[in-house]
Design a protein around this nucleic acid. Structure first.
Lengths: 343, 343
DNA sequence: ACACACCATGTAAAGGTTTACATCAGGGCA
DNA sequence: TGCCCTGATGTAAACCTTTACATGGTGTGT
C-alpha cells in the first residue's frame, strides 16, 4: 500500500482477512494453517511486499540471525577466502555475517563483546587462538562458538583447521624423497598450536626416515618475513649448513629466499625452500613456492556449518575437525646441490 | 544479579531506584538528568553489567546500527584492505559491518535486500558499478548508500574512488619520460567507468606529449590475466609493435608479461609493462610491477565516513570523492629497447 | 445423540527500548 | 501569599513479532 513505510504483519493480516497470528504461522509453520488460508496469506504478502522485521523477530525470539566473525586482521589476504566460505554457508541458512577486527587489541575486542551481550549476534567465529576478550567472567556468557585453525583458549570450543602434523609430514617426506638429509626447520616460537604441530610433523618425518635431527638446524622465529631472513643469517655463521629450508609458513619462506638470494645463492639450485599455507603470493615468488595448501574456503564453510549446528542444539559430533592438507609442488624444491654433497 | 540472563534496563532502574525512563535518559541524554541521579544510574549499570539490547533499541528507533557492505567478490584480496578501512571507521562510531557477497548473482543480491527491508541495516556500501538488485522499484526504498570506486547505477548515490584519469596520466607520463613513443593500451571494454577513465588519461597523456595515438595499439580486453595474454598475441600478428604495454589493471599486466615471456622476451629489457591498482601480488611478479597504488584502506574509511554523515542527515558536500592515485615505481619499466629503435 | 478429540484460527501477553506527555517540586516574582 | 516557569522524573504507549492458551467448529466412535 503506502510505499513509504514497510508493510508490517498487520497489513498482511488485514488484506488476507485473518489475524496476525495466522500470518505468522503461515510463514513459519505452514503445515499448521489450512491450505486455503495459506494461499490468501501468500497473496497478501505478495501484494504488500512484506518482509518480517528482523529486529522485532530477534527481540521476541531472544536471538538474532547474525554471526559475529572476529579476526585479528581482516586485511590478511588469507582471511578473505575463509570469509567466502563462512559467508556462503551462513547466507544459505538465512544468517548474516558480522565482521569484527581486533588487531590483537583487547580494547577493541571488548567492543565486540557488546554485540554479543546485546543479543546482536547469535554465534561467534573466533580466529585467534586465545580468546580475545579478557576471558575473566566472559567465557561463561559466550554464545555458541567455533574456532578457526586452532582450539580456542581453554578448549571446550570446537574448531576447524587442517591437520598440521600431516601437512608438515608431507613436506619433509618430499624433501627426503628428493634426497635431502640436512633439513633446517625455521619455526615460530609463539604459542600457536598449529606451529607446534608443524614442528611435530617435521620431527616425525625425520624420525621415520631414520635421520638424526640436528638441533642446530632448528631455528625459532616469529612467522614473519624478517624472522626468515634472520634465521638464514644465524645459520650461516655456523658451519653446519642445511641443503633445504623447511619453513613454518610462507612469510618465513619468503624471508629465507630473500636472505639466500642476498648471499648470491640460487633457489632451488643451491638450496631448496618450502613454505606452509599457500598464500596468494606463493605463485608469484621466484621461484614459485612449494608449500601446503590450506583449503580456506572449505574451512570457512565447515566452521560455519558446525556453528549453525550448535545453534540448533545439535551437539557437535567432534570437538576438532581437521581437513586434509594438500602439498602444492612448485619450483622451490629440487635434489640437494652437488656443491654441498662434495663437501 | 543472576548471571544467566543479561541485565535489562529494568534491573538497572530497580537498583538505582529510578524509573526506566530515567535510566534511558541517563545513557542517551545525560544532560537531562540530575548529576546525583546520573551517578546512581552509572553505578547500577556497573553493578549489573548492563548493555542496552540492540534489538529492542533498533526496533523502537526504526533503524539499526549495522551497515551492509555488498561486494561482488569478498574473496578478492583488494577487498580486504578496503574492508579494514570500512570496519575501523564504522566501529569507532558504534556501527557494525555486515558482509554481503553477491558473486554478481542477482538472486543472491536479492537476498541481501531482505536485510535492508527488515531494517537490519541502516546504510549500504556498494561495490558494484551497477546496482546489484534489479533496480526496478528498488531504488526508491534504498537506505542511505555510498558507492566504492564508481558511481552506482543511475547516480544520485555518492561514491569514493581515486582519480583514474590522473592515475593513468601518471603512468603514460612516466613511459613517455622514459622515451617510449609507441605505447600499447590494453583496456577493458566492460562498462566500468574507472576503465573508461584510465583510457581517457592515456589519451590525454599522449596528446599532451604531441604523440599521435595509434588505434592499432589499443586492445580491448576484459581485465583478466587471459585477456592480457590474448592482447599480446593479437599485437604480434600485426607488424606495428609497441615498446611499452600500459595495462588497465594489474591482472592484465600479469597476462601481458606471461605472454611476452612465452615469446622469449625480457621485461623490461625488450618491453616495458605497467599495471594499475597495485594488487598485493604486484611486488612479487618478476619483474616487480610498476603500477598505480589504490589507497584502499583510506577509500574504505572515507566511504564509511561519508555514509555515516548521510545517516545523520548531513547531506554530502559532494557526490564524488576522488583520492589521489600514487605511482609506484618498481622494475617493469625502463627506456625502450634499442632493438626496436634500430628497426 | 453425546462425548471427545482434533484442527484451524483468534486473543493477548511478552520481549526491551525510547519518548511524548503528565506530574510534581521548588524557586522567582508580583 | 499565589502564580507561573523550569527542571527532574515518572507513566504509558508504541515499535513488530511469536506463541501459549482459549475458542469454536467438524468429525469419529460408541
Amino acid at each position: 500500500m503506502s510505499e513509504s513505510t514497510p508493510a508490517t504483519i498487520e497489513d498482511v493480516a488485514r488484506i488476507a482477512e485473518v489475524s496476525i497470528a495466522t500470518v505468522s504461522r503461515a510463514i513459519h509453520t505452514p503445515e499448521k494453517v489450512a491450505k486455503s488460508t495459506r494461499l490468501k496469506v501468500n497473496q497478501a504478502i505478495a501484494i504488500t511486499g512484506y518482509t518480517t522485521n528482523a529486529m522485532a523477530r530477534s527481540l521476541r525470539l531472544g536471538r538474532s540471525n547474525m554471526i559475529l566473525v572476529v579476526a585479528p586482521d581482516i586485511g590478511d589476504p588469507n582471511f578473505s577466502s575463509i570469509l567466502v566460505g563462512l559467508e556462503n554457508e551462513a547466507r544459505s541458512h538465512g544468517y548474516g555475517v558480522l565482521i569484527g577486527h581486533t588487531q590483537n587489541d583487547a580494547q577493541r575486542a571488548l567492543e565486540y563483546l557488546k554485540f554479543l551481550n546485546s543479543n546482536q549476534a547469535a554465534g561467534l567465529i573466533l580466529f585467534t587462538g586465545i580468546l580475545p576478550f579478557g576471558h575473566e567472567t566472559m567465557t561463561a556468557r559466550l554464545p555458541p562458538s567455533v574456532g578457526i585453525f586452532e582450539p580456542v583458549f581453554n578448549g571446550g570450543i570446537p574448531y576447524v583447521g587442517i591437520d598440521d602434523i600431516e601437512g608438515a609430514r608431507k613436506v619433509v617426506d618430499l624433501l627426503i624423497a628428493e634426497g635431502h638429509r640436512k633439513i633446517a626447520f625455521i619455526g615460530d616460537s609463539r604459542t600457536r598450536l598449529a606451529y607446534k604441530r608443524r614442528r611435530e610433523g617435521f620431527d616425525a618425518g625425520l624420525d621415520a626416515a631414520g635421520i638424526r635431527a640436528e638441533l642446530r638446524l632448528v631455528q625459532e622465529g616469529d612467522g614473519t618475513l624478517e624472522s626468515g631472513r634472520a634465521a638464514v643469517e644465524r645459520l650461516f655463521v655456523r658451519d653446519t649448513l642445511p641443503t633445504a629450508f623447511m619453513c613454518v609458513n610462507d612469510q618465513t619462506a619468503l624471508g629465507v629466499m630473500i636472505g639466500l638470494k642476498a648471499r648470491g645463492y640460487d633457489i632451488p639450485g643451491d638450496f631448496s625452500v618450502t613454505g606452509f599455507d599457500d598464500v596468494p603470493q606463493a605463485t608469484f615468488m621466484t621461484p614459485a613456492l612449494t608449500t601446503i595448501r590450506q583449503p580456506r574456503t572449505l574451512i570457512g564453510k565447515q566452521a560455519m556449518a558446525l556453528l549453525l549446528g550448535l545453534l540448533s542444539d545439535r551437539r557437535p559430533a567432534e570437538t576438532e575437525i581437521l581437513l586434509r592438507p594438500d602439498l602444492v609442488v612448485r619450483n622451490s624444491v629440487t635434489a640437494p646441490s652437488r656443491r654441498w654433497m662434495a663437501k
